[in-house]
Simulated assay, not measured.
Amino acid sequence: MAKILKIYPDNPQENLLDQVVRTLKNGGLIIYPSDTVYALGCNIFDIRAMEKLAQIKKIKLEKAHFSIICNDLSHLSEFSRPIDTSTFRYLKNNVPGPFTFILEANKNLPLAYKGNKTVGIRVPDHIIPQLIVQKLGHPIASTSIKDDDEVIEYSTDPELIAEKYDHLVDIVIDSGYGDNVASTIVDLTTGEPEILRQGKGVF
Rank of each mutant, 00 (worst) to 15 (best):
M1N: 13
M1H: 14
A2S: 15
K3V: 12
I4Y: 14
I4D: 13
K6G: 12
P9G: 08
N11P: 13
N11Q: 15
P12F: 15
P12G: 14
D18Y: 08
Q19A: 03
V20N: 01
V20F: 08
T23E: 12
N26D: 11
I30A: 06
I31E: 15
Y32M: 09
D35G: 00
V37L: 01
Y38L: 04
A39H: 09
L40F: 12
G41T: 14
G41M: 14
N43C: 04
F45E: 14
F45L: 11
I47Y: 06
A49F: 07
E51T: 07
K52N: 08
A54Q: 02
Q55E: 01
K57A: 04
K58G: 00
L61Y: 14
L61V: 13
E62T: 14
K63P: 10
K63D: 09
A64Y: 01
S67P: 10
I68Q: 00
C70A: 05
C70R: 08
D72M: 00
L73H: 05
L73A: 01
H75F: 13
S80T: 15
R81T: 14
R81F: 12
P82A: 02
I83T: 07
F88Y: 12
L91R: 14
L91D: 07
N94H: 11
V95E: 09
V95R: 12
V95K: 09
P96K: 12
P98S: 01
T100L: 01
I102Q: 12
I102K: 12
E104N: 07
K107F: 15
L109K: 07
Y113K: 05
K114T: 09
K114P: 01
K114W: 09
K117G: 03
G120T: 10
I121H: 01
R122D: 02
I127V: 15
I128H: 11
P129H: 10
Q130V: 11
Q130C: 06
L131F: 00
L131N: 03
K135A: 03
P139H: 09
P139V: 07
A141V: 09
S144P: 15
K146R: 11
K146S: 10
D147N: 10
E150T: 13
E153M: 04
D157S: 01
D157I: 01
P158V: 08
A162M: 09
A162T: 13
Y165V: 01
Y165R: 06
D166Q: 13
H167T: 15
H167Q: 15
L168D: 04
V169A: 02
V172E: 15
G176C: 02
G178F: 03
N180P: 02
G191Q: 00
G191P: 15
L196F: 08
G199Y: 00
K200M: 03
V202Q: 11
V202T: 11
